[in-house]
């Protein structure tokens, strides 16, 4: 079943368009990776899907329902969560409070869900009452992902989850992403680290200059000569 489709998206900031007729599709349980050079519009696409930017043209559909132009706080209620690339934690709040904020729209008892997040990222449990500002980059990324998972979303949007992390932490975060996906969460991942992102992807899209260039299974893109030459550095 198709969870999300973005059709013919034209979007960008107030005065400049970044995306020109971009199309992507996510099937149930898939990891979809979006790769491409800097300035290709990858983050812009995530922001447009999540309602932070309003597309000038095109349509975003979640399970057949038109969600184009809805604001982020409404999109969250539809079961999509988003982890921004930077500033993705509340620095003066404790880890536990960060997770609670992820569950802000829940009115039921979500303590079990917090335990789930601690099981996924055990290191966070010990630091539960520490402020997020005191965490390392990798731990912050875990808090950011944990916050986004509090609502048990059907689709998770990750903007450069490995950005700025040490290599050892990068592979750890990717392992966690695979683990989260295995629990049934579909994902769209935007990544600079194209090779790793395609390895775990069911489907991959290559964007350049705000346009779709290629799309295929992750494996096919990894072995494609053109992708290798242009986007994977030989």
């Amino acid at each position: 079943m198709t969870i999300l489709t973005a059709k013919d998206i034209i979007s960008g900031y107030t005065k400049v368009d970044i995306l020109y007729n971009v199309n992507i599709k996510v099937e149930q349980g898939q990891i979809v990776s979006i790769i491409g050079p800097n300035g290709a519009g990858k983050s812009t696409l995530l922001k447009t899907i999540f309602g932070i930017l309003k597309p000038r043209h095109g349509k975003v559909e979640l399970k057949g329902e038109d969600i184009t132009g809805l604001k982020p706080d409404k999109i969250v209620q539809k079961g999509i969560s988003y982890v921004p690339q930077v500033d993705n934690v509340f620095p003066s709040l404790t880890i536990r409070e960060n997770l609670e904020m992820g569950a802000f729209i829940r009115n039921d008892d979500y303590s079990g869900r917090i335990e789930d997040i601690y099981t996924l990222f055990p290191v966070l449990k010990d630091k539960s009452n520490q402020k997020a500002s005191q965490l390392s980059g990798g731990q912050r990324q875990m808090v950011a992902m944990g916050r986004a998972l509090m609502l048990d979303p059907g689709l998770l949007l990750l903007d450069e989850p490995s950005a700025g992390l040490a290599p050892r932490l990068v592979s750890m975060i990717f392992e966690k992403i695979i683990e989260i996906n295995a629990s049934g969460v579909a994902m769209i991942i935007v990544e600079q680290n194209a090779r790793e992102a395609l390895k775990m992807a069911d489907h991959g899209y290559v964007l350049a200059m705000g346009k779709n260039v290629l799309d295929d299974t992750g494996e096919a893109l990894l072995t494609s000569e053109e992708v290798g030459r242009l986007y994977l550095g030989g």
């Binding site: 999540f50 932070i52 604001k71 982020p72 706080d73 969250v76 209620q77 988003y82 921004p84 500033d87 993705n88 934690v89 509340f90 620095p91 003066s92 709040l93 409070e97 904020m101 992820g102 802000f104 729209i105 916050r147 609502l151």
Partner: peptide
């Protein structure tokens, strides 16, 4: 407090 920390992220959290 969360909104004072980071309003964008607060919106994103719903």
């Amino acid at each position: 407090r969360a909104t004072a920390d980071n309003m964008e992220l607060a919106k994103v959290s719903g």
